[in-house]
């Protein structure tokens, strides 16, 4: 579980986040949604500590993230995995070395144990046998899978994904969404996903917060989205005329 309290963030004179409270639950896929530029990435970076909030608190279960000392923080880092929007795979390393990197860096496992852990993870994301390929040699969808494998190799308790299906075709996007959802449930992870993809909202939105004008304008689950009265949310989710017609039909 991750809880944020009154998170504010300014860049210079511009306040991007204007006070946000939310609870990201364990074993669920928690979605942060909103238009491009709404502040999704900024909020995610605050959650993982790449940005410091101007005000407010982030709780990892009972740990106050921004009040932790170096050792505690290092410990927490081992419990966190992240999938980046651009994958951030190390392009001079093979798939196997990419996934193995966190283990190489910190674990005391033997080479054999590391290999078997890496292979388990690659199997989990359906990439068996891609060990020796380089990131530039595989498709966007496969790169995402490698990113996921790397994020879960240390068996994290918290998983963060920044727009996991941006740049993928709809079909691949859905499989990636499902993969993240399944892993979340299997391993009982607190997963936070940034997205502006309405398919994800409908399929894997266990908890949703909708960012608009620097505030959380709407909270709820995927089942509640349809009936939301929030006009901005409706405009965002049912952006195309086609979807609006569908919604009208569904209502009747």
């Amino acid at each position: 579980m991750i809880k944020i309290e009154n998170i504010r963030k300014s860049f210079g004179d511009v306040e991007v986040l204007k006070g946000m409270d939310f609870l990201f639950e364990q074993g669920k896929t928690n979605l942060i949604i909103g238009r491009s530029g709404a502040g999704k990435t900024v909020l995610l970076k605050i959650l993982v500590g790449l940005f410091k909030p101007t005000e407010g608190k982030v709780w990892y279960d009972d740990r106050d993230f921004h009040a932790m000392d170096k050792d505690a923080l290092r410990e927490l880092r081992m419990e966190v995995g992240m999938l980046f929007q651009g994958n951030a795979l190390f392009d001079s390393m093979t798939v196997e070395d990419n996934v193995k990197f966190p283990l190489d860096m910190f674990s005391t496992m033997s080479a054999k144990e590391k290999r078997s852990r890496v292979n388990d993870c690659l199997e989990r994301v359906s990439l068996v046998g891609a060990n020796d390929k380089y990131p530039s040699e595989i498709s966007g969808g496969m790169q995402k899978r490698v990113g996921i494998a790397r994020a879960i190799v240390y068996k994290p308790k918290y998983l963060f994904c920044d727009e996991p299906n941006s740049g993928l075709d709809p079909k691949t996007a859905i499989t990636i969404d499902e993969l993240i959802k399944d892993i979340t449930v299997e391993q009982n992870i607190t997963t936070v996903i940034n997205t502006h993809d309405m398919n994800s909202v409908m399929e894997i939105g266990d908890n949703i917060c909708f960012l608009d004008k620097g505030l959380i304008a709407w909270k709820g689950t995927r089942h509640e989205v349809m009936d939301s009265e929030n006009q901005n949310l409706n405009d965002f989710i049912f952006a195309s005329p086609f979807l609006q017609r569908l919604k009208e039909k569904a209502k009747k």
Binding site: V48, L50, M82, A88, P102, M105
Partner: peptide, 17 residues
């Protein structure tokens, strides 16, 4: 390419490594 961010999140002190 966010490689540095990715390493930081893993707990790597990138300035050092």
């Amino acid at each position: 390419k966010e490689h540095i961010d990715a390493m930081e999140i893993m707990g790597v002190n990138t300035s050092s490594f």
